[in-house]
Each structure stands twice: as structure tokens, then as C-alpha cells.
Design a protein around this nucleic acid. Sequence first.
DNA 1: TAACATTAGTTGCATATGCAACTAATGTTG
DNA 2: CAACATTAGTTGCATATGCAACTAATGTTA
Lengths: 154, 154
Amino acid sequence: METKETSIDFETSIGLWIGMTTKIVDYHLAEAIHCQGLDLSKEQMIILKKLYEQDGLHQNELAHLTFRDKSSLARLLSKMERKKYIFREQSADDKRANEVFLTPLGRQVYQKTRPIIKELIDRMEQNLSDKEKQQVIEILKKVQQNFLIEHKPA
Amino acid sequence: METKETSIDFETSIGLWIGMTTKIVDYHLAEAIHCQGLDLSKEQMIILKKLYEQDGLHQNELAHLTFRDKSSLARLLSKMERKKYIFREQSADDKRANEVFLTPLGRQVYQKTRPIIKELIDRMEQNLSDKEKQQVIEILKKVQQNFLIEHKPA
DNA sequence: TAACATTAGTTGCATATGCAACTAATGTTG
DNA sequence: CAACATTAGTTGCATATGCAACTAATGTTA
């Protein structure tokens, strides 16, 4: 088959739209946090949220839950530890592992982020019907499956 | 109104799904580039593509087209210049501005990235119907509009 | 039990990113 | 025309990120 100079329609592919949307939402989230005068990145905010839901998680588990490399997570935690939002404690069961906990200050800061998250979600979904929300999640699940499933040979 | 300890359903919100999907796609793109032995980041790849479509763009315009800060773009270009993929040339019309061009090597590298982009898009969309692709783009457009339009007071 | 393999976490080195402050060139305005 | 304002690009400083190499602890196996 000849390789005609076909244009690659990345612009009309869903990839561009998904990426753009992420950038826009991320930008507004960072801005909203900053406007509240919180000393916190959006990534750190997600960590606070996860720990609020389940204190004492291992770094390991936190990294997995938030889809990042363990090294990236370790450095996020170090910054949050410096700010006294969290602390680490060596696990008694497995001396390699650290359990991570929120400090009272961390809980307090998390409480301040809650309305930010809520407003972000509300704004993001404000003109979407329930059906549309359901549809987009279903479709994105399919996209994800395409990468989790082993690539089929032609 | 009392502030009941309502759970923030970020997990069931579309935000989480959009962000996850971006991470997965980004990861596989970076891996695919690396597997081809190309000395190139995915961000640099997008720059090559834009310049291939339109050579001589100002840094300004390139930054806008790729949704990044001008400083971020400037540093991307510096790395690509070191690798001899692009070069900058002071604009005759406006001595503040640089026009950015692909080198022959840059074009050659871009050609090698084309199948990577094509396979990525194909894989991403492999089990989606045309209707689904259209739906997801429509919905994401709506989400973006929610952030571009000025926030309405209650 | 001793040797080997795996796992949790850290660190070095590379990437990208945004904001703010800065320079140099251009545009505007009294 | 001179003073001021804006614009294009660079740089300092901060953030986050992944991979690979490394340590220390745990698990496995011969």
C-alpha cells in the first residue's frame, strides 16, 4: 500500500480534546487554590483528600492510588511534611514501609479545599445532563481499556 | 443550610476520568516514542508537528497553539535547537520576535513520529463508534465552555 | 541457614511547567 | 519628539514527574 501524504488528524481526534480539557481544568483548579491563599499545589491537595479518606496509607499505596511514580510521591510528601500537613511513621509490621498520616493542620487545610473541589466539579458539569456525564465516562473507560488490554497484532 | 459531611464525589465526577485518561495516553505516547529510539519528548514531538504544518511561526504563536506559557515554550525550543531539530531566526519585521523553522533533521525526525501518532490515535479509538467519538468531543467542548465563559454569580 | 530475589523508599539526573522580573523593541500619546 | 505602555522573548525560582541506581528490609529457595 502506498504511503500517501495523508494528514494526521490529531486535531479532530479525541486525544486533543481530552488533553485540552485536562489542561483547562488543571489550570482553573490551581488558580482556585491560589485564590484561597492556600499554600498547596493541586497534586498535594489530592494527597490530602486521599489521606482524609484513609489515614495511615503506605507511600506505596498512595502512589498507586494517585497514579504516580513512587519517587514523585516521596518528594510530594517531603514537601508536605516540611509544611507540617502530614507525617510519616515507620510501619511496625514492615520496617521498609512508611505509614502516612494527616496532622491536625493537614486536616484543617483539607477542610478549606473542600469547597474548592465542589465548585470545580459543579462548574465542570454545570451544563451537562446526567446522561451526558454517564456517556462520557463510559467512553473514557473504553479508551482506557484500549491501553490496558494487550495490543492485538494485526 | 447545614454543612453535612457530604462526601465529595470526585471519584464519580467526570474530572477524575478525564485526568486518568490523559495520564494513560501520555504514558503510552512517551513509551512509544522511546521504543522507536527517538531522542524526543512527546511535547517536543507536538512542536515538530506544528512546525511541519506551518514553518516560520513565532514563538508567541507556537506557545498559544500548544497551550503553554511562552517561557515553557522557549525552553522546549532551546533543547530542540541544541539537538538541531529547529532553528530560530530574528524576524525582519519585528526585531523582538523569532521565527522558528524545522531543520532537515527535524523534518526527518518528524517523519519518524508520524506512524507513532497514527497508531496512538488508532489504538485510542479502536473500539469507539463514530457516534461515540462525536459525542465525547461535544461533551468535552461543553466542559471547556464552562471555564471559558465568565463564571455566573448565583 | 545462606544465597538470591523482591520490595519500599530515597536520591541523582533528566524532563516539562508557570509566574514574576527583566531586556529590548515596538506602539501610543500628550 | 519624548515619555509611557505594551509586547516578544529570556531567565530565576518554584513546582511536578519518571527512570535508573541505590539501601535496607523482607521473602524465597536450595
